[in-house]
Nucleic acid binder design. Sequence first.
DNA 1: CCAATAGTCAGACAGGTTGCCTAATCGATA
DNA 2: TATCGATTAGGCAACCTGTCTGACTATTGG
Lengths: 397, 397
Amino acid sequence: MGLMSTSVERLSGSAKLLRAMNTSAVLAHLLSRGPLTRSDIRELTGLSKPTTSEVLRTLVSADLAIVTGHTSGGPGPNAEIYATNPDGAYAAALSVRETGRQPEVALAVTDLSGATRARHERVVGLDVAEPADALVKALHSVCRDAGLAPDRIRHTHLGVPGSYDPTTDAIHHVDVPGLGRAGLVSRLRRRLGATVEVDNDVNLAAIAERRHGVARGADAFALLWIDYGLGLAIDLGGTLLRGSRGGAGEIGYMPLGLPGARTLLRDAPDLHSVLAGPAVVALAAQHGVRATDPAAAVKAGGAAFLAALAQRVAIAAATVVAVLDPSLIVLAGTVGRAGGDRLRDATTVALRASGPLEATIATTGVTDDPVLLGAIDAGLERVREDLIRSVQHNHRQ
Amino acid sequence: MGLMSTSVERLSGSAKLLRAMNTSAVLAHLLSRGPLTRSDIRELTGLSKPTTSEVLRTLVSADLAIVTGHTSGGPGPNAEIYATNPDGAYAAALSVRETGRQPEVALAVTDLSGATRARHERVVGLDVAEPADALVKALHSVCRDAGLAPDRIRHTHLGVPGSYDPTTDAIHHVDVPGLGRAGLVSRLRRRLGATVEVDNDVNLAAIAERRHGVARGADAFALLWIDYGLGLAIDLGGTLLRGSRGGAGEIGYMPLGLPGARTLLRDAPDLHSVLAGPAVVALAAQHGVRATDPAAAVKAGGAAFLAALAQRVAIAAATVVAVLDPSLIVLAGTVGRAGGDRLRDATTVALRASGPLEATIATTGVTDDPVLLGAIDAGLERVREDLIRSVQHNHRQ
DNA sequence: CCAATAGTCAGACAGGTTGCCTAATCGATA
DNA sequence: TATCGATTAGGCAACCTGTCTGACTATTGG
């Protein structure tokens, strides 16, 4: 509504455009639906036999598609099975974790089919003259493991505990020393000679949750990340909401109550002070649980502690529901994951008690590193979109 | 990201599709850019002269476009100026207001050019056997005034103080007696023989704000509606966020502080109890302002009262910013409008004091009935989209 | 009268479709 | 076991649709 410039309605052109559209449509289907025969493609696109053949010839000669096999069993000749060429493009994923000590970096290289070719996890010192170079070095090392020349990486997706502002070319709200350096991303781009995209770690976790976790098939959901810090990712039917300055989901700053009100904790003006890692540890201590790690505290805590924690989670959940009305709220981060079914159930109860707002609460279903998985998915998606677009542009005019 | 099914990439077809696309592209340009000559269209679409002529012939013969005039002054023959036919389609807008007494209904009929043909405002009793019939009767009366047969209305857009859930075919969270009746909307559709869409009144006000108010050209903004009730509309680049059950923006239910916390007001568990109409009147009374109408109270109130009110508005604003990070927050509703620049400035100060969250606060720039204006815009938009789509489908296959 | 522009017309072109053909494969039947 | 028919894969040629280019006419202002 409002904006009418959805490109579909405005597209205009001649026969060349048609060829471009058909080629990219076939590529898109091959990318999303896996290996397909000619007749599969014909059914999906509605194109005729000669056109389908012609388009596939184009894709094969552009090294974007290959014949992976033949059907058998049915009557008639065996149909060729086409798939995208796994070696048609590669993407790298890079997740920088904030651990208190040296930053940990997880890296992976995947091919166009989504198969992980190599994966590393290592400590990388970023508090150096050129933090970008340290990341590039780590990336080169993974490429060596994958048996790939670094310049074959078409796109790198970087996950960071902060938000990237493209206008200032700096990563904000980040505690990792060196990572907030202005110009880091553009230096990365120059050094790698490829596109680099930066995303918030919680947003990436939400992407992984939609792809591999409990949010599969959800229309819209919010992911509440509880760890040392707090975060919220908002997924609207597969599109992440990032906000005007990339600051959407910074719910740690959410105010609690009117100024001057006496809240349960003294000096608890915002959600961060009652729900982030330190607050969880402090709450656990109040209930006689001694632990320095918030996730360990949650695992060790009893029912009373969990109920108290759930009340705080419910505050966050209720606010999100009041503003966005997602159908699902996923609890994630080390605390969310450690809470498991117990925290989920307690939060559901607390949310119901707090008012008429309704939403399903779930615990994250991603067991592997969610940020790295999300970075892989997002990077792969970006590469695929680029390929589809490039096919369209090659044939235009 | 995630969902790849953006239709652009998947469109496929033959020459017929091209014609359909080009025709609808020209129609879209005529609808959004106003009257155009052939050469204007040629520049906008990149089509050749013969094709442009052919497409325009099609549109004219379908009664969707007309020649409105001729250029003059330059050398050469005078070019024909084309525009959409104002009488190509009509839309009706209908806003039901909650006034405490009988519900007030505002109605308007507009043509395809956006010109209002007739407009009414009347009290309609909806607490009857068939509330839909009462609305239809009112609509027929406006049509008579506009000199139009009711069956020429292609679409009716209904604005209500509540949220419509299509799965149950009922309007929820609504205080107007009769309007919450299940099946009202589908009966309206049957009686009118046209499409009917229902939208929340605050959402419609946001549409009007983007079109005619201070949110013109904003990338994303939130509209905070303060009146007898509270509401929030979330506009993301022209698309409204409605939530999974249409409940997005029900911030009246937003919890304030942890349960058990002693807030400024006793029994103030949610935002409604501190910021909706009655709370505004009560706060005014605390500051020695006697008024029963919240807007009047705000107008009469002094600086101290306004500062106190602004602190509460800032809580809502800060929460919205923490979750969504809009670049702009518009204060609307009778209270927001009555607050004017004073409330805007006080809220800006209070928001800045409350934390590191930043956003521009503005007062609504819509002076006319924002809900009706929004319903007109939304209805018109819907009709235009339908026309564009119908042109595409007529030519397909 | 000349320059510039509006609009049409005819032929070329690009791409897609239909219908027909051949080849391959499986299952049924003699 | 050998053969035949049904079914399907894929290619080829002719046709169709829609757009583009370039030339042409008509119209207006200087």
